[in-house]
Design a protein around this nucleic acid. Structure first.
Lengths: 260, 260
DNA sequence: CGGAAGCTTGAATATGCTCAACACGGGTGG
DNA sequence: CCACCCGTGTTGAGCATATTCAAGCTTCCG
């Protein structure tokens, strides 16, 4: 049984009827027409005609859980959509410490470095957390498309600003919150993300991350994370089936415990 | 005597001669022609003719140290350049905890929320750290300019991506570094920033932040910051005149102590 | 059913925090 | 010119929170 974040994500602000008519009239490429993130991703900025340009340079890639897409320091500058699965952005040190600086869900975008001259190395690695599917666009061609399609560039700017906001929110968590607040925040974030991904009404789902990854995301040790989760379970704020499958989340109480 | 970050920042990649000729032929507005961040800021994306559009909507604003430009939760959506001084982006809580999520130096840009429909409230306050001068652009008009001048939008996108990278680097510091590493990183960051701002060879400068602000920036208490600074002084890694004026920075040793 | 990976729990420890006193320095007023 | 004051920075002692290290326990898979 596929995990729910592999399922179709639905379409925002557009009825099924209008989509299929659009497909028929403009002959959208099949890959894009059937893509579950066609309208929720960056691609949503492009019309059925324009999407051809993107489709022409796209390449699909599948990764197993744990596999890296890009390693820290690599020269990779390509762009990509996450079409299904969850990925983590990680910065690590030799001594074992590592910090997750972002999670990517379906319809999220991986942005390479812009500008033609710089051969910057990747600032963090990108690794599959669950089975991952990417739709990759080579650097040069994508950047040209970006200049040719202002709507695409504008949407990318907007998304980057959103990401910046999320990163800064996380800075507050990492710099100023207690262990309990961090864990509560994490569960709130994941719960809300899952709801956004088109599974409204879904009362249960698998956690995308294991305890070690949660720890690396919220700047704690895995033991501390485990202890806090145990506490939340004992207090009835959350409930699991096994260690990954969440079956109950009291968002109100979580918000209270999340601080601020 | 003005502090050094109030001084002219010089021009990147363009000789003085070529600038003045440009001014003469294109009749750049006086305010912009004399602006010390004309070419290092976002404005650098615009030609002498184009800069008129920006100049027409610009409004200057001066703030004393400690004064807020925007308060957390305000409806302000305006854009602005920092022309001189240093500002901090702060997120705070009722209980006294607060976290600085970014510093703005001359030529840095304050980006309001994009898109016509959302009346989002400010996610963090913006406060003057030293005497601050802003060049403010009203939201509506600036966003129109953004659409009319692709080079401006592209530069903004690039800068936003840079900011995102900085925020993520800081997440690693806040999530995984020890007190000593955090303080060492802070001094490295400030030292390098000061060098970038056109004061190469400058071996001494005033710290832009007091101990309390440093603490809020690197996620510690001011006591811990003070203790770590004392240690660095005793070890001869840094040297002060008074409590704010740095006269010596051993960047190599700092890098060693910064971890990673 | 067995083995491995991931998770939980416990006890001891360390790192940074809290609270509190004191020092320094620049400005003001007697 | 000195005394005082206030904001800011330093130092100390005790404490709390999260870490470390270690053992045992589930859960998932073969």
């Amino acid at each position: 049984m596929p995990r729910f974040w592999h399922r179709s994500l639905g379409v925002t602000g557009m009825s099924d009827a209008s989509i299929s008519s659009q497909i028929r009239t403009a002959q959208e490429p099949e890959l894009c027409a059937n893509c579950n993130i066609r309208h929720s991703s960056l691609c949503g900025a492009l019309s059925s005609e324009e999407i051809n340009d993107l489709n022409n340079i796209a390449r699909r890639k599948t990764l197993d859980p744990g596999q890296p897409h890009v390693m820290e320091g690599d020269a990779s500058r390509d762009f990509a959509n996450v079409t299904s699965g969850v990925a983590k952005l990680v910065r690590g040190a030799e001594d074992g410490r590592s910090q997750i600086v972002g999670l990517l869900f379906p319809s999220d975008f991986i942005c390479g470095s812009l500008g033609t001259s710089k051969p910057k190395s990747a600032p963090h690695s990108i690794e599959a957390v669950s089975a991952l599917e990417l739709c990759i666009f080579p650097h040069m061609q994508f950047e040209e498309l970006l200049h040719d399609h202002p709507s695409l560039e504008f949407k990318l700017l907007n998304r980057t600003l959103d990401e910046l906001q999320i990163a800064r929110d996380w800075m507050v968590l990492l710099g100023r919150k207690t262990a309990e607040e961090r864990v509560a925040n994490f569960f709130l974030y994941v719960t809300q993300k899952m709801a956004t991904l088109g599974c409204q009404g879904q009362t249960s789902f698998d956690l995308p991350l294991g305890r070690a990854d949660i720890a690396d995301y919220i700047g704690l040790t895995l033991e501390t994370v485990s202890r806090q989760i145990t506490r939340l379970k004992k207090d009835g704020v959350i409930a699991f089936e096994g260690t990954k499958h969440l079956v109950h989340v009291d968002e109100e109480e979580l918000t209270r415990r999340a601080g601020f």
